[in-house]
Design a binder for these strands. Structure first.
Lengths: 143, 143
DNA sequence: TTAATTGCAAACACTTTGCACGCTA
DNA sequence: TAGCGTGCAAAGTGTTTGCAATTAA
C-alpha cells in the first residue's frame, strides 16, 4: 500500500516511517491545504499515535524535499500544507466557511516579464490568492 | 504640524494622541511596509517613549478605521503595516534584501469575473505578491 | 468629569528545539 | 549498529489581554 509514497521518500533520501507515509497520504488525498494540527488530529483518529512536534518536523522536511508545499493565507495565523503535484497553483478562499479552492490556472501571462522590465528586478515567482464567498455561503447568508 | 493626520483621527472618532500621530506619520513617510517592532524602535529613537503593546493596539485600531493596512508576506512571521492611500496595491519583494516595492498596478483585469463565472463564487478581492531580486542584489550576488 | 488610552506584566497561539530513547536501512 | 526519527517537556516568537493609572475631549 502506498508504494509510490514510499518511493517518494526513498528518492528524497528519507527513511520510510509510518508517520511520514501517513502524512503524505493524508495530504495527497485532501483536496484542501490543511494545518499541522489537523493532520495531528486525523492521525490520532486513525490510530496512528504521533506527537505534534513530529508532525511539524515531518512537514518541515517534506517541504525541504519539495514533496509538499507550505503556504499561509492572509490573516491566517497557522501554516497550511498541501501535496506538491508540481503544478503552478493559486487559491480561492471563501471568507464565509474558510474553504480553500485550489486553482490550477494563472492569469498573469507575461506580467512578470513586463514588471521585470519596468523595475529591473529579476522576478522568480508570485503568489496570488483570491477571496470571496462560495456558492453555499452565498445561499445561506445572502452575500 | 500634521494637521491632516489629526483630522484623520478625528474623522474616525479617535482621540488625538502623540503616539497615534507619530505612528501615522511614520507610516505615511515610509515607502515600505514596516513591522510593529520597527515602529516601536523608531518612536523610541525619536524620544517618543511607548510600549510595544500600545503600538500593537494603535495599529489594530488604525486598521479597523482603515487609515492603515495590515499585510503579511509569505513566510514572514511578522505582520507589516502601511499607510492606506486607498489605492489598489500589490507588492514586489526582494528575496535578497527583503525590500518591498509597492506596485500600484494590477494585471488581473477581468480575471475575477471570469473566475466567478467558473466557480460560482462571488469574488470580493485578491492579494498578489511577486518575488525576485532587486537590481542591487542582482549586481552584488550575480543572481 | 469621564470615557478612551496607555503601561506593565502575564497570557496566548503557533512553532521550534534539546535530549534521551527507539527504530529503519 | 549507526544514525535517522520520535516523544516529551521546555523554550521561543510574535501578538493579545486584564487591570490600574493616565490623559484627551
Amino acid at each position: 500500500m502506498d508504494e509510490h509514497l514510499k518511493a517518494l521518500l526513498q528518492k528524497s533520501g528519507l527513511k520510510n516511517t509510518k508517520h511520514r507515509t501517513a502524512i503524505l497520504e493524508l495530504l495527497e488525498q485532501n483536496d484542501q491545504p490543511v494545518t499541522a494540527e489537523q493532520l495531528y488530529a486525523e492521525m490520532r483518529s486513525k490510530n496512528i499515535p504521533v506527537n505534534l512536534s513530529t508532525v511539524y518536523r515531518t512537514l518541515d522536511i517534506l517541504c525541504e524535499k519539495e514533496l509538499i508545499t507550505k503556504l499561509t493565507i492572509e490573516g491566517g495565523a497557522k501554516a497550511l500544507f498541501e501535496f506538491n503535484n508540481n503544478l503552478h497553483r493559486h487559491h480561492l478562499i471563501c471568507l464565509g466557511c474558510k474553504k480553500i479552492l485550489t486553482i490550477e490556472n494563472c492569469p498573469l501571462g507575461d506580467y512578470e516579464q513586463k514588471l521585470a522590465g519596468k523595475t529591473h528586478f529579476s522576478i522568480t515567482g508570485h503568489k496570488l490568492d483570491l477571496y470571496g464567498f462560495c456558492p453555499d455561503c452565498r445561499r445561506k447568508n445572502e452575500f
